[in-house]
Design a protein around this nucleic acid. Sequence first.
DNA 1: AAGGCTATGTAGCGCCCGCTACAAGAGGAA
DNA 2: TTCCTCTTGTAGCGGGCGCTACATAGCCTT
Lengths: 179, 179
Amino acid sequence: MQLSRETLLPKLAAHVLEHGLGGASLRPLAKAAGTSDRMLIYHFGNKETLITELLGYIAELYSGALDAALGSDRAATRQECLARILAEGSKPEMQAFLVLWWDIVAGATRGVPGYHDAAQAMMTRQLVWLEGQMPADDPDPAGGARYLMTMIEGALMLSAVGHGDTAQQGLLASGLAAS
Amino acid sequence: MQLSRETLLPKLAAHVLEHGLGGASLRPLAKAAGTSDRMLIYHFGNKETLITELLGYIAELYSGALDAALGSDRAATRQECLARILAEGSKPEMQAFLVLWWDIVAGATRGVPGYHDAAQAMMTRQLVWLEGQMPADDPDPAGGARYLMTMIEGALMLSAVGHGDTAQQGLLASGLAAS
DNA sequence: AAGGCTATGTAGCGCCCGCTACAAGAGGAA
DNA sequence: TTCCTCTTGTAGCGGGCGCTACATAGCCTT
């Protein structure tokens, strides 16, 4: 069967979603895609562009997952809106993205090519999704969505390093969550 | 001159603060410390415990930097408190910690030994520092500090991936920052 | 002085890395 | 048929990795 970027990317994405980006080297990636490192280089040119295209593909996967989760009804309050997105993020199919996410943020900070753009695209998409969920009668939907966004990402990071309780108490004190 | 963990750690820390944890392999680390990979293994046993001890040392460095920044006077308002810690984080001597931070978070999420504990310790320390900065008349200093903490970390992450403006607008909408 | 323990240098092991050289099969174009 | 291009397999290169074997120089004890 003919190989191509398009047929390879889904299998490569599945592999990094399971095993992370850090240790993603050509031979394991190739094995996961049912081919050889030789062919990965042939189809992508080199590893750097492979990773760049892979991150772009994963960003699209993430968009698709958010689209699939997009209920057509808005939330009634900011509290409900926050509760919804937190529930969305705790779904198992989103967990893989979460684990990968910090690899991407670290890469973006260090300036590794492709990481920053993919991360920005994923956050932009999440912001759009969040704005669509904001209550219809919210006095400031744009600002409110960005406010929720900042709290959510903060809570996410604190949870990642064992300060989930800190984040929870922060949400409570903000009035965005109820005990 | 006699080498030891204690004399080596500062030089190793300086190296990873400059070059990151990702590509920190024994030979470059040894060169930065003026010795050989052979001696790093001799003094630390293996790379894993070296990294664990190094992260612990860096967490102490971070604590020390916060202590040095700790003015004895509290802020007058939450807004001022937030402005202070944001100013603190933008100091050049803190930038190196910030770049390293996402490596640590990614490692903590992936379960690499030592990363989680170091990250948690650094966040705990920052929370303590923040509580000490809260206004004396604040109705809920503990909750407020955790609230600020969540917003700060969220803003930090968004800024890391090119969404600094999103975070800024989020801070404005929260009422914690003034335009 | 003799022996042992600690600290260090030199060399190299086996392994994985990204990548490449080279040959060959497949299929279309002349 | 005869080429020629696209795709793939096999093998391997140079280099970095964590780590180890071995020798040795210096010091401390007896």
